[in-house]
Nucleic acid binder design. Structure first.
Lengths: 153, 153
DNA sequence: ATTAGAACAAGAATGATTCTAATTCAAATG
DNA sequence: CATTTGAATTAGAATCATTCTTGTTCTAAT
């Protein structure tokens, strides 16, 4: 089951401007758009299967394999990020601003934390001599506000 | 195939002092000792299967399931650390000093980087109000010295 | 209209990890 | 010394996320 992109694509929203970067070397298909929209509307860092579940409501015929394809495509084009805080399942988020992830060790939720000031890793750690840094990934583990108050009682 | 711990355990080494913490609430079985020793002698952050491969030389009868059990046990007691820099496979290291991981995006190797000064995450990121931090995990991605020189030519 | 290339679907395949059930052992007890 | 209890261990099955394969369908260009 497939639709024509021009006729059935959702109305452009503020987020769609980011999709414009796909213009030249990639195609913005309805499925990719739906997957991206679902992620853009989610703050809970859904897994691939979560995304599949949510996209199904809009594109009933979509398959899990296609969701994986779309996620990989969008990740490859820098429109979404892959997050891996726990052992097992990969999670995704559409927040491509500089940020780190806060992981609650009690309920397993993941939320974003935004930078106050930039961090230069070479000021804090002795990196191997001659290495080059492309990016730094930070995951802060602890208790989210809800779990912290629950535990303190 | 199992051995008596007292009779066939390897001679105590400097690292064994760390195993002493297991004393009260956990048993230091030969397998657990072997798994720990293999990790203590490795600087390349082996996967569970790598550990299995290396332990087999010393304990030929050991099973992969036992290696997983031992790794989980040692991780639970804070003797080793679980590292996850890439998508798929978990890696382990016996370095429990404060350190972060440097991941080469070209060859996939993982090495340790030690801190120059402590990092307080609350100075750098706006954490959710009311949350508590237990630890911060940092992974620095880039090119290791060998791959960096290879690429620059 | 034809062709080429990408997107897609379905299900198989892979691969890491966990679970299950049965066995073996160590230490404590009678 | 025999028994019991509980943990360690094993092999293999099961699970689960992810990737791969194959054939089909669509879009855009020719």
């Amino acid at each position: 089951m497939r639709k024509s992109p021009a006729s059935t694509a959702p109305k452009p929203s503020g987020l769609d401007c980011r999709l414009a970067v796909l213009g030249t070397d990639a195609r913005l298909t309805p499925h990719r758009r739906e997957v991206f929209q679902v992620l853009a509307e989610s703050t809970d860092h859904p897994t691939a299967y979560d995304v599949f579940d949510r996209v199904k409501g809009r594109s009933p015929g979509i398959s899990l394999a296609t969701v994986y394809n779309c996620l990989e495509h969008l990740t490859g084009h820098g429109l979404i990020k892959l997050v891996q805080v726990e052992r097992a399942q990969a999670r995704y988020c559409a927040n491509i601003q500089e940020h780190v992830h806060f992981h609650c060790e009690s309920c397993g939720s993941v939320s974003d934390a935004h930078p106050i000031k930039p961090l230069d890793p070479t000021h804090f750690w002795n990196l191997p001599a001659g290495s080059t840094v492309s990016h730094t990934e930070v995951a802060i583990h602890g208790l989210c506000p809800a779990c912290a108050t629950k535990k303190s009682r």
